[in-house]
Each structure stands twice: as C-alpha cells, then as structure tokens.
C-alpha cells in the first residue's frame, strides 16, 4: 500500500490557485523529486502534506488513512518529517536540544533513548562537534544540515526536503546528497523539492513537474527531463 497519497488536492490563496487538483502516491521507501519554476506551488504542496495548510478540496492519506483534518503535530507523530526551505532553527536552543525536542515529541522517544539517538543523527549529518552550540549563530550549510538532522530525529517514514541543497557549494552539496542517499537506503521514503537538478536526479527514482499549481508530469527522471513541454516551461527554452 502507498505510504502517502494525495487525491485531487487543491488550494487557493484568494483568486490564485496555488495547488490545482494534484494526485499522486508514494510507495514506502520511494524517492520522489519535485521540480518546477518559482511560484509553481511546490512549498505549498509540502504545507498541504504536513498539515500546515488545509486543502480547499481533496484528500491526503497516510498508510491509506485519511489525515486531511489532522494537525502538523499529529502527522509528524504518524511519520512525516520535514525540512524548511528557509531554515527554521530554535535559535536559543543548542544544536543538540533542537534534535532533542524533535526526538522527545515527534519521535515519541523516552528520556533514556533520545540522547543517544540524537547524537547518532548529529554524527551522521556532520554536526556532532557543534552539539552544544546555540543554533542561532550557525552559518548556512550547518543550518541546512540542522534542518535535515532535526527532521531525522522525529524518526520519519517519509521525509520532505525543501530545497535543502540550494545556496551550497558543490562540495557541500555532495556531502548532503551522500547523507540523504544514506537515509533513503535505510528505507525512509523521500519527497525532495530541488532546483539543483544533478543533486536531485542522483537520488530520486521518480520526478514530478509542477507549474502554476498543476502537476504537469510525473515519471522516470530521464523521461521527464527529455519531455519537450518540461524543457519549454521549466528550462525556459523557446519552442
């Protein structure tokens, strides 16, 4: 059974339709990439999946169960983890505490098991040496790593990554991709919005193109990238 599925999901902000009748499903352990021009409604789609926004129409299902009316807290507890496009650390908490919150609440870990789990995630995301530093003062790369680490600490079965490679150098990006690939190889399903295509296509097995809130195409990455309409709209080539 699909771990996550959307069925006819739509959302408008005033007269602007930001998500227009989107349907797809994600199998357990699958990695799906989402691309599309700025303003295509990619982050909005994430907010609909996590419950930060309620759709005007359509259903969101987790393991076949309708969660459309559930809060972000409930969906996190059910196994959806996310990273934000603009990192949202808890500034006055340490890096370690940022993860501890996620592990104790979303991950429902006990006081005994959470510390080791958090340290494990910090080690895997290259943040272990910064564990006791306040999250507010971190530079961009480490803030991005923290977004990923904090989402991992909630023990997600589906992890949503929103432009996590954006603004990084090639080397930094490569490191992050290796971490993401490792998470994926352990069986966590991934939905990843990204403009850095080579990073994205090195991980995902399916690619979705969004434009003006509509799902333009979904399929194997090479097929999607070869499609003429995708090249026109997404890459801005003349017809």
């Amino acid at each position: 059974m699909a771990i996550l599925s959307l069925q006819g999901v739509s959302k408008s902000f005033g007269a602007l339709k930001v998500t227009d009748d989107v349907s797809f499903s994600l199998e357990p352990g699958e990695a799906l990439g989402i691309i599309g021009p700025n303003g295509a409604g990619k982050s909005t789609l994430f907010n609909l999946i996590t419950g930060n926004l309620r759709p005007d129409a359509g259903l969101v299902r987790l393991d076949g169960r309708d969660v459309t009316g559930e809060t972000p807290m409930q969906r996190c507890a059910s196994g959806i983890g996310r990273s934000f496009q603009i990192p949202q650390p808890f500034d006055h908490l340490s890096v370690y505490e940022n993860l501890l919150v996620a592990a104790r609440f979303g991950g429902a870990m006990t006081a005994a098991e959470a510390p080791a789990a958090c340290m494990d995630v910090l080690a895997r995301t290259g943040l272990a040496h910064l564990a006791d530093r306040k999250a507010g003062g971190l530079p961009l790369l480490n803030r991005k790593r923290l977004e990923l680490a904090r989402a991992m600490a909630t023990k997600p079965r589906v992890i949503l990554l929103d432009e996590i490679a954006g603004g990084l150098t090639d080397a930094e990006c490569g490191e992050l991709v290796a971490t993401i690939r490792a998470i994926h190889s352990e069986g966590t399903a991934i939905i990843w919005i990204e403009h850095v295509l080579h990073a994205l296509t090195s991980v995902v097995t399916r690619l979705m193109v969004l434009n003006f809130g509509k799902m333009l195409m979904i399929g194997a990455p090479e097929e999607v990238m070869a499609a003429r309409e995708v090249r026109e709209i997404y890459l801005g080539l003349d017809a």
Partner: peptide, 18 residues
Amino acid sequence: LGLQAVRDNPVAARSVGV
C-alpha cells in the same frame, strides 16, 4: 523543552510534533 522551542519558532515546533 517544547515550550522553549515554541517560543523560538512556533511553526517549526509544530512540524516536530510540539
């Protein structure tokens, strides 16, 4: 701990289950 997370960033707090 959850309360301090909420104080710092309510949106992020919700997304980690608080």
